[in-house]
């Protein structure tokens, strides 16, 4: 029995509206940026340089260059923004009562804020 099908491959000219909402755009935007920033960061710290060489003097050298300070700073902010926005759907999938969701999201935001502050302080301190 063949399924009755109305499969027509018509491309309708729907009036172009915006793609998705704000969180949709944030996740995709930070994600694309992170693909470059994070993979690049990993490449330099683990592949180009062996991980044994990335000691304190390596950090001092790396963060005396404006390029890497900006790179790592941007990496920090975009990564945490990406996690914060993308995990909303994840929390909603596994905590199904509204109170539990709010608590989990608040805890997550708290953690991300702490990490942001620690990371920013470390970077600014080291960059002088």
């Amino acid at each position: 029995m063949e399924p009755t099908t109305t499969r027509t491959d018509t491309r309708t000219r729907t009036r172009p509206g915006r793609i998705g909402g704000r969180s949709f755009l944030i996740i995709r935007g930070t994600g694309v940026l992170l693909a470059v920033l994070a993979l690049g960061h990993f490449a330099v710290t683990h592949l180009v340089n062996d991980v044994a060489q990335t000691d304190a003097t390596f950090i001092a050298r790396r963060w005396s260059s404006a390029l890497w300070v900006v790179w790592d700073g941007l990496l920090l902010v975009t990564a945490l923004a990406h996690v914060g926005t993308a995990s909303v759907a994840v929390v909603r999938d596994y905590w199904t009562d509204p109170a539990g969701q709010r608590r989990m999201l608040a805890a997550l935001r708290g953690l991300l804020l702490v990490l942001l502050v620690i990371g920013a302080v470390t970077l600014l301190f080291a960059a002088g």
Binding site: P3, T4, T5, T6, R7, T14, R15, G17, R18, I19
Partner: peptide
């Protein structure tokens, strides 16, 4: 879908705003 519908495509359409 036993009727050959494409809900995934409908969802992609909705993301782009559907019909104004």
């Amino acid at each position: 879908c036993p009727k050959g519908l494409d809900p995934a495509r409908s969802i992609r359409r909705l993301r782009k705003g559907g019909r104004d």
